[in-house]
Design a protein around this nucleic acid. Structure first.
Lengths: 118, 118
DNA sequence: GAAGTATCCTTACAAATCGTAAGTTATAAG
DNA sequence: CTTATAACTTACGATTTGTAAGGATACTTC
């Protein structure tokens, strides 16, 4: 018998993927979404242009798309102040704020492990 | 004076985005990567086909790409057992395992807030 | 000894997503 | 009447992803 893993088919029902977790990671993992959430965690209620300025290389189009998604999933609340120029503020809902520990943990990991590496 | 946010340009230097965190969320937020990491957190050392079976709708091509990325970033270690059929095992490195608290927090959030919603 | 099987990838091409740059709206100031 | 502003849209090319098929290899079955 050679060393190494079994050559048999894996026992029926190995590890499985939690569907709630999977939906979550695909939602907040979309491009730019993580950064936008981080910014909103810091200031209470921020204007479109403030968020755009806080995230380098984030275009208007992407910011607009991502905020729409976050609003659709009830992570962010949108308030319009009529203008013109119209001003719009975005703030995290309770649901959104509850992501703080996750973001915090990830930030800790990132600072430790991504510090001097590519 | 009308109610609402300032009409002035935002004070210079509002909130800012942590570059380490940003790199981290864009890395583990790539499509399927979060799910693959979750599976690897469960079993110690898993074969390609076992991971593929654990994540619904994940194709060979994507799994191959993502594992290559994770290996390049030193989150995952790859071991080949010559065949044929050749067998390959993937396991988290220490750096990868240190993501456990983050994933755990996110999973908690997901189960609480994504339970009965779309 | 020809054919089938198992495993881990590749390749090719269509579809979806993203990046970049320019355009839109509406009013008040000058 | 022209300009300025904030928050979006739109258009289009570039990148990423989904889908399906193919490939390499040697052991096992017929």
């Amino acid at each position: 018998m050679l060393p190494g893993p079994s050559t048999q088919a894996p026992a029926q029902s190995g590890p499985a993927c939690c569907p709630y977790y999977h939906r979550a990671v695909e939602l907040i993992g979309r491009r730019w979404t993580g950064a936008i959430l981080e910014i909103l965690m810091q200031g209470g209620s921020l204007r479109f242009s403030v968020i755009a300025a806080a995230v380098p290389d984030l275009s208007d189009r992407m910011l607009s798309d991502r905020l729409k998604e976050l609003e659709a999933h009830a992570l962010v609340e949108r308030t319009v102040f009529p203008g013109p120029p119209v001003r719009v503020q975005y703030a995290l809902t309770h649901k959104g704020q509850e992501l703080a520990p996750t973001l915090s943990e990830l930030k800790r990991w990132a600072r430790h492990w991504l510090d001097a590496s590519a």
